[in-house]
Computed example of a mutant assay.
Amino acid sequence: MSATARGIRRQRHDAAERPFIVIWESTRACPLTCRHCRAEAVPDRDPRELGTAAAKDLLGVRMAERTTRLARWVLALTGGGLLTAVAGPAAGWRPAVALGSTAQVTKLRQETPDAWVFNGIAAQYAKRPLKAAAGERVRFWVVAAGPSDGIAFHLVGTVFDTLYKEGAHLLKPDKAGGAQVLDLATAQGGFVETTFPEAGHYAFVDHDTRHADAGAHGMVEVSD
């Protein structure tokens, strides 16, 4: 952009070829049905959506090639719920987060959201259980995405023999002891491991019952 004598800025390049803001609607899948939503949200992901590898290729290579010639640019990743992630410029990927509508923010402040979820959809793993085999070692990666509440990840019917939290092992299989829960504050992450002793159905929950009752629960279906 260039400044004229009157202070009006005019573009020096074709924005279609070198945009300074790119908005990517990464998904239309969302557990909410907000009347104000301009995205016409649907409950399940479209099979044509980009997977993780294709998305990384787009962000890391193709989009960077089209935008790095600009001194500054902004990429907005949107779709799928309350938060919009904003990153820019291309070199450095400095992220920011923008909250959604006034109604959503009000519910957030009052701690009365429509649902608490695992991976974006309330109770999805109760309807479509995770699969495992008896005697198989299984790892659960957990991130307390928040934006306000942490999580107490608990698996009913077995004990965790491995617990990794915020970059450090707190429990390993070759050490004595066991863990019932992986407790994470907002924005923390980690994983737990266990071996299912026999076939059956093993429930997992966020042990804060407000969260579990509102959708943060699921099931692991274990076969012989």
Rank of each mutant, 00 (worst) to 15 (best):
A132M: 02
A133T: 12
A133C: 05
A134G: 14
E136W: 00
E136R: 07
E136G: 02
R139W: 04
F140E: 10
F140Q: 06
W141G: 13
W141D: 15
V142C: 09
V143M: 00
V143T: 13
S148D: 13
D149K: 15
D149A: 15
I151G: 02
I151D: 00
A152K: 11
A152I: 02
F153C: 06
H154E: 14
H154N: 10
L155P: 05
V156T: 09
G157P: 08
T158S: 12
F160A: 13
L163V: 14
Y164C: 01
G167R: 03
H169A: 15
L170G: 01
L170K: 08
L171F: 10
L171K: 14
K172H: 03
P173R: 11
D174W: 14
G178V: 02
G178R: 06
Q180G: 13
V181M: 11
L182E: 03
L182G: 08
L182Y: 06
D183I: 09
L184G: 10
A185E: 14
A187Q: 07
A187N: 11
A187L: 04
Q188A: 11
G189K: 12
G190N: 07
F191A: 02
V192F: 07
V192E: 10
T195D: 02
F196I: 04
F196Q: 00
P197M: 00
P197Q: 06
E198Y: 05
E198T: 11
A199E: 15
G200P: 09
H201S: 15
A203Y: 12
